[in-house]
Design a protein around this nucleic acid. Structure first.
Lengths: 204, 204
DNA sequence: GTCGTTCCATACCGACCGGTATATATATAT
DNA sequence: ATATATATATACCGGTCGGTATGGAACGAC
């Protein structure tokens, strides 16, 4: 059993920045979805060749998964808003931040977890399920926040945290569809305003 | 200028039912989306050969558009619910019927207008826009119903029909994403219950 | 230098994509 | 029967898909 030694800086150095290439790939996946993004689209945007992509990221599916992870890092600040003191503020901020992330500059693009592969060919079923699973994780975070709120007396009486969480997730995902359909940032904020109407208690 | 005569029943008769074949195609598009449905998937499900498909329906995009039209006919009863006397009942029935159409038997599949091509390669941009356009038509129907309600005093004060309509459409589209992610019929109905909470006036 | 290792560039792989040419089968019209 | 018109069956088209074999280029180790 021999040590792996310093096999870090051996051979010809990589001529591109992996993180930057991943960011570019994320953009393509975000715009075109998993199946809609061809390897040629990806390598063109990343500025690297096909073998470089496979050496650095494995294959298309692994690249997508890494792009999803990166997307999750970027969006972590959105989930962080759930930690606000009032549950109502937390939910409203979550939705607002979520919409903010879906509207880059002038173009509305929606959420990658929704745009990525809502429906697809059977070959990509695996990716589709992965996305659904990640969406479910977000819904769970919301649910846990609302369960906490319930225990703190910070929820309207007779509330069902599970149903409320699914409702919030549904709004968020619907906003993604709206964004993909061309709705403006302001439009989406107005939807949030209406959506928060279920909350009978105003906390300020 | 000669009459076209009776060129209806000439030549070898078609060996399949066009309507039934279109229904089968609709199923495939619904499950896999526009790009995710290959011609082989389609012809296999339709039970016809490729040239027969092209002779009867034009090409893949035209077939999809005809499937959309057929889908619209089926879903026309959903839009019809908007004509109920009370606006609140109309909206609630619309959402409930909508969910009913998205859950066939045990499998939840969402709305074709959302699943069809939320994101895609650049070649199918045309189809994507078509779907967004059809979604917008539905939202307009809702808006007009709410505008009518406003004029009838059947809306809460300070309501904004446009924002409310977009909100309803957002819920409906979010439900489609939820359905695609595996939510059950009952789950979706519970979401609707929460979603109607914005409506401060109960009409019975 | 030479070696070992890693990366890049090119060209290529089989499979499948949407779409079609060709030939044959089956109907009506006369 | 013959001609005409339409549908079907088969086999095929160029192009693109995701993925890779191959050979040379650029580094550290020695």
């Amino acid at each position: 059993m021999q040590k792996p030694k310093t096999l870090t800086k051996l051979g010809r150095p990589r001529a591109f920045d992996v993180d930057e290439a991943l960011d570019r790939a994320l953009e393509v996946f975000w715009s075109n979805g998993y199946e809609g993004a061809s390897l040629s689209d990806l390598t063109d945007a990343m500025g690297i060749t096909r073998p470089s992509l496979y050496a650095a990221f494995g294959n298309k599916e692994e690249l997508f998964r890494k792009a999803l992870d990166r997307y999750g890092e970027r969006a972590s600040s959105v989930l962080a808003t759930l930690e606000m003191t009032s549950a109502r503020d937390a939910i409203e901020a979550f939705l607002t931040q979520s919409v903010g992330g879906q509207c880059d500059q002038e173009r509305s693009r929606g959420c990658l977890l929704v745009q990525g592969a809502l429906s697809c060919s059977e070959e990509s079923e695996h990716v589709r399920r992965e996305l659904a699973s990640r969406r479910r994780l977000i819904e769970q975070s919301i649910r846990q926040r609302l369960i906490r709120a319930e225990s703190e007396g910070d929820l309207p009486p007779n509330s069902n945290p599970a149903d409320l969480a699914r409702y919030i997730a549904t709004i968020s995902q619907g906003l993604s569809v709206q964004a993909a359909g061309g709705a403006s940032h302001k439009d989406l904020l107005n939807v949030i305003k209406v959506a928060m109407g279920f909350w009978p208690i105003t906390s300020h």
